[in-house]
Amino acid sequence: MINVFLRELNGLLWQFQSILIIGLAAGLTYLSETYSDLYPQLPFNGFALIMSVFGFLVVLTVSHDALNSEAAARTFRLVVIRIPRAAIFGGKLLAHAGYWLIMLIVAVGVTGFFTAPGLTGSTTMHVSLLFFSISTAFFLSALIKRPLTSKRVSVLAGILLPAAVIWSYAADNWLHAVSPYHMYIYDSILAVIIPLFYGAVLLSAAYVLFERSDL
């Protein structure tokens, strides 16, 4: 598992996208904080807003092919003959979780340096949303065999979910209350259980799909 983890993490970290993600998070947080007066109807702003609107989308866009790209490239074949599928799944999951945690820590650090008041939402909330986002990415990656298709579905899902929650909040119906964004909307630390629950369900489903898939 450790070798799969190290290779995957190394591959993720040494990409230009890492710098782009951190820059984007810090820049957008700064803009959100600067122009927050223009959107008083939003329940929250700053880093929490950026995480809600773009976090899910960015995680899905980067991690959508965590499992299916190696299956499509047939590199998994040379790995699965050596180690259990659980070790492959675990190594990949740890690598993506580790990567996004590093991104989060650096983004929070950079954001805090430029605009300390922008650091809205607690780290627990951000981590639980990350867990939900990574789990969704793994689920889509295990469900959809072709990386190009999973990329399209991920982009769509990454746009539709935040949009649906914003619409639900504006329309004042129940959807936003059961969404992973409840914790940000109502600033409720207890509500981190919602994304954690969804994340656990999706991750379990991803694992079952991966165990049953031909590589």
Partner: peptide, 14 residues
């Protein structure tokens, strides 16, 4: 697994 080696058909390498 450590006692088995395999050449799959058309394997992918890094």
């Amino acid at each position: 697994k450590n006692s088995v080696g395999m050449l799959p058909a058309d394997p992918g390498f890094y």
